[in-house]
Each structure stands twice: as structure tokens, then as C-alpha cells.
Amino acid sequence: MQVGPSAFMALAAVLFSLGLYGAVARKSAVMVLMSLELMAVAVSLNMVALSRFVTPTEMTGQVFTIFTMVVSAAEIGLGLALVLAIYRQTRSIELTRMDTLKG
């Protein structure tokens, strides 16, 4: 069985779409953050696969994946800290209840 880059891209697309659905559908802040992580991982997978198949010696995709990981780690740390801070204020992490910005 031949597994080319399009197989990886298809898998990444599936993971990304699932993450997209989760980010929209779930109403718990933590669950939304998890879905965002899933989307980030799908992107990383794409970059690593294409780096391996297209420019294996340059490794640009791998380097960028490292930066993506840094950013998403920072994002998840900050996001969870925010969730904690909000929980302390409102005793809830339901996104539906955070509507003080209502116009």
C-alpha cells in the first residue's frame, strides 16, 4: 500500500474538521481549548508530512512545527489561566454564561 502526502493531508483535514466542530459545538471553555489543540495538531501534522515528502533536507516544516508547538503551549497555558481566573469570578466555565459584553 502506497501512503503518499495526500493521505497525511486527508488525515489532517479530518482532524482539523473535528476540532472545528468541537470548538463551535462544545460549551465548556476547557473543551473548546481541547478542540483548538486538535486543530493545531492537524496543522503540525501537515507541515511535518509535507516537509518529509517535498523538502526533506531543508526541514523547514519541522522547524515551523517546533514554533507552532511553542505558540500553542503558550496559548494553552494562558487560556487555562484565563479559565481559572474567570471561574474565580463567576464560579462557572460555561461559555454561554459569559455574556457581559452583550450589546
Binding site: Q2, G4, P5, S6, M9, A10, A13, V14, F16, S17, L18, L20, Y21, G22, A23, V24, A25, R26, K27, F53, V54
Partner: peptide
């Protein structure tokens, strides 16, 4: 929790990416 909007968005997005990949073909097999 079910979200129709989310499902539509995800399906449209996934379908488009699949279409794009299919049209691109597996040039670097």
C-alpha cells in the same frame, strides 16, 4: 451538545479540503 452550525461548517471545510487534495493529485508519491 449538538451544533448544526458547527457540523455544517466542519463538513463544508472538510469537503473543500478533500476536493482540493483530490484535484491536486498525489504528485509526490
Amino acid at each position: 451538545e449538538v451544533s448544526v452550525a458547527g457540523a455544517v461548517m466542519a463538513l463544508v471545510f472538510g469537503g473543500l479540503v478533500f476536493a482540493a487534495i483530490a484535484s491536486y493529485g498525489d504528485r509526490v508519491a
